[in-house]
Design a protein around this nucleic acid. Structure first.
Lengths: 213, 213, 213, 213
DNA sequence: CGCTAATCGAGACGGTACGTCGGGTCTTAGG
DNA sequence: CCTAAGACCCGACGTACCGTCTCGATTAGCG
């Protein structure tokens, strides 16, 4: 929940006027507003700068381009995700799914997320930034959820850490992928009904997979 | 497998020089090449026109913009998807997953797919075009796979058509979402190992979900 | 008095929409207006384009930069210079000097002339352009004045063409230089009084120089 | 040869660290170097500051802008002008003309002089600064030359001081104007041959003008 | 000697203009 | 009516300088 990688690391630590912390906040907020009102493709860095009451140069001094800026702006929204303690693994999963769905329902997230992923397919550093700022932030939810379920006794402890990590990755891709696909590609609502049915499927699959091993 | 919606329908059918059919093919091919070499964001219609040996005018007469053109260009690639008959539902699913993975491994598909979906979040007609040209084409695979499994007796017939459709949608989102997420967001390989583990999870979940009802 | 070198010669002579002749005129006029209102250093090509009702690209397609554009814009003003027939060489010179002074009194000429000459000291092609468009146009006045004086019998015919050309160059530098220096550097008025005194000096010098040979 | 107006007069004379005298020299020298290497229009104050090993702040504390700085930088070069005693008025004039030509042959003078004069056409204070630092410095040469010629008896004493001043102004404009025009506009060499011919013309004119009165 | 206050370097800041690029449209001549 | 060519208007790009500002760190000279 702490501060982002704060754009690009400030160069050296010598003299000179320090960078305005307020500018960073204003820019990120203006970026999100711009995404809401204009969408990704019509969002211009000039407009962001104007709206943030900041010069374009200030913006370019901190971010390399639109993608990097938007990743940081959207990443802040992912800070609010957490695993709610609803008493059971199934309920926890449903809760997370719904939280995630709310996030994907926001227009700024909706328009930005796929766009930066699209850019990242031809931009390796951007992919790393996305992973560090957004993806890993979500993946931690999976690990937290499993830990809690193991504490409750709903899931057995897994001594094989490699297999455990591989399973976590699989679950993560399934959850995140399915919710994103439902919300953005199929463009159908991710409501409680859907979350219930999806969780049922997932937990059933997990049980079957565990039995297999 | 028949022709696309062929961009904008030609106006009336009066006299005059007919549109060049060769131009269409050249443009779509040039678009795919451009996607491979430049990626979505750096692909320009001017460059496509030049590469296709066609005037920009010709291109704009047929497509409304970059998104529409790219949708048509990559949609052709989805024509090759089909459910292989590998003898069992599990094997069929694994086959489809791997086919899909190969498609998402192509650079033109990779960069284009996410980008047009991103655009579609703020462009309703584009969303329809994507659904018609790409998404439904994939969803049919789910229906075909289930039908074959029912014929083999691996799955029971479902009399409740509404529930059946809803289940198909869920499965579709899970499969497509998980594969896309694994391939493009996690950027990890979708290989046979992963396909096997994913299929195990999915089928286990389906069984559990069926038992629930 | 015919048209300028018309910016940069149009590339090839093939198909495509022809360049707008009206645009050229509008741009040059806008340039002169801009010079009057803003002066050389605050004149921006963007402002010229806007004022001419033309896109910046149109402007850059025809001229390489501010200097070239301004040379062409100002050169048109030099078209109006001519040697008046006032009956005597002395009166003709006074007339030309006053005409030239009026031209240098215009704000657009005043601010532009020295500026482009300054630029030309580090820009060879620009120097050529200035010579072709502006300087030679004035030098012709010297030749015309001399020819007329010879026809009147005020000056002897000069059989040595090399010496004649050298003398013409000297006279030209003296006249143009003195008037420009008086008007722009000393910033004192070039009025009839001054013109009379200057002409007296010049003609006296010419007679002395002729006697020397 | 005394100090320039030293930019902006230091405010009051209270305590605090005094301004570095070395900085002034370094800046002016860096300015001249910059003019040589970049020319007027590409000379930037940031570059001057860097080259002088000085902060931009220091530079702006002393000069109001590029024009003022450049005037001071080139004005120093005009300090070396003086009327040589070559024994006769004609020889003195030729000497001054050649000295002036050498000065105008330097790239820093060439590019700077015309540029600041151009600026001065729309900047009254700048015109005053130029006059004080550069123009009057040259004009004094005319007066000195005349005084010496009068002492030699080559020229009569002029009791009418008003007319004498007017004549000096005229001569000054003719000499300076002709040399500058020859050197910078016609871009032809101001060599001994030219100086001789020009002086002949000038002295002949002066004699004729004197006879007229 | 220690204050005090203006200087210094560094460099971020809000601006303005740059010259280029791409998007779509339109205007030619030719098929 | 279509086509290739290319000029057109428009708007955004990312960069460069401008002149100002805010820092922490030096220096003098005065007390």
């Amino acid at each position: 929940m702490q501060s982002r990688t704060s754009s690009t690391t400030p160069p050296a630590r010598t003299g000179g006027r320090p960078r305005s912390a307020a500018a960073d906040a204003a820019i990120l907020e203006a970026t999100r507003q711009g995404l809401v009102e204009l969408g990704w493709s019509k969002l211009t860095l000039g407009a962001v700068a104007t709206r943030a009451g900041v010069a374009k140069t200030t913006l370019y001094r901190r971010w390399a381009g639109k993608s990097e800026l938007v990743v940081d702006a959207v990443a802040e929204l992912f800070d609010e995700l957490e695993v709610p303690d609803r008493g059971s693994l199934a309920a926890d999963i449903e809760g997370v799914v719904l939280q995630f769905a709310v996030l994907l329902g926001r227009p700024e997230t909706k328009t930005a997320l796929m766009a930066v992923v699209a850019e990242s397919t031809t931009d390796e550093p951007l992919r790393d930034r996305i992973r560090a700022s957004i993806v890993d932030r979500q993946k931690r939810l999976v690990l937290a959820g499993r830990k809690r379920a193991q504490e409750r006794g709903e899931l057995p402890a897994e001594p094989d850490t490699v297999a455990a990590a591989r399973t976590a990755d699989l679950i993560f891709d399934v959850i995140a992928g399915a919710v994103v696909h439902r919300a953005l590609v199929s463009a159908e609502p991710v409501d409680e009904e859907w979350a219930r049915r999806f969780t049922l499927l997932l937990l059933g699959g997990l049980a079957a997979a565990a039995a297999q091993t």
